[in-house]
């Protein structure tokens, strides 16, 4: 066997990784990623079709968008776990990468909340441009201003 002479890459490795026998798992993951991407595209085009109707239901669109977010997280899981081989590492290694990412839970929730509140406040108090965030005279805005 070729990999019996496999040299351990560094002294930090106590138990060397055994190379995979074939590429079956790689191709299986490829098909999973491809199918998820197709479903995501179908969702995107469904939103496009729904938007053509002027009185579309916001909650349906929001539901589809939520589904797309979950599908993207599934794709991320497969890429990290199989392609980046994090799933093959020992538990300590997996946790040192995954646990800090939990900060994103707060990060996303807090900032989306903030953006939403910002819009509500502006709609309530900025009476000169009701229902519109782009000012009537764009040239009075400083370049790069966010609203």
């Amino acid at each position: 066997m070729e990999h019996s002479e496999h040299v351990v890459a560094s002294p930090e490795i106590t138990f060397p990784h055994e190379p995979a026998a074939n590429t079956k798992r790689i191709w299986k993951t490829f098909w999973i990623l491809l199918v998820i991407t197709m479903v995501e595209l179908a969702c995107g085009l469904t939103i496009y079709t729904i938007h053509k109707n002027p009185d579309f239901s916001y909650s349906t669109v929001l539901f589809i968008k939520g589904a797309v977010v979950i599908l993207s997280l599934a794709k991320a899981f497969f890429i990290v776990s199989v392609f980046m081989h994090l799933g093959d590492e020992i538990r300590n290694m997996t946790l040192t990468i995954v646990v800090p990412l939990l900060l994103f839970v707060w990060f996303i929730a807090a900032f989306l909340w903030d953006g939403n509140s910002w819009r509500n406040l502006r709609n309530e108090f900025n009476r000169e441009v009701p229902g519109q965030t782009q000012p009537a005279k764009p040239e009075v805005k400083k370049p790069g201003a966010l609203d």
């Binding site: 890459a9 560094s10 930090e12 490795i13 106590t14 138990f15 060397p16 990784h17 055994e18 190379p19 995979a20 081989h85 093959d88 590492e89 020992i90 300590n92 290694m93 040192t96």
Partner: peptide, 26 residues
């Protein structure tokens, strides 16, 4: 790719990396 580690192996007992990967990869 898989790693065979004996059950109950003590990773934090010192003298080795508890992550079982090379410095560069970590």
């Amino acid at each position: 790719m898989s790693t065979t580690v004996p059950a109950g192996y003590k990773w934090w007992s010192g003298g080795k990396s508890p992550f079982n990967v090379s410095y560069g990869k970590l």
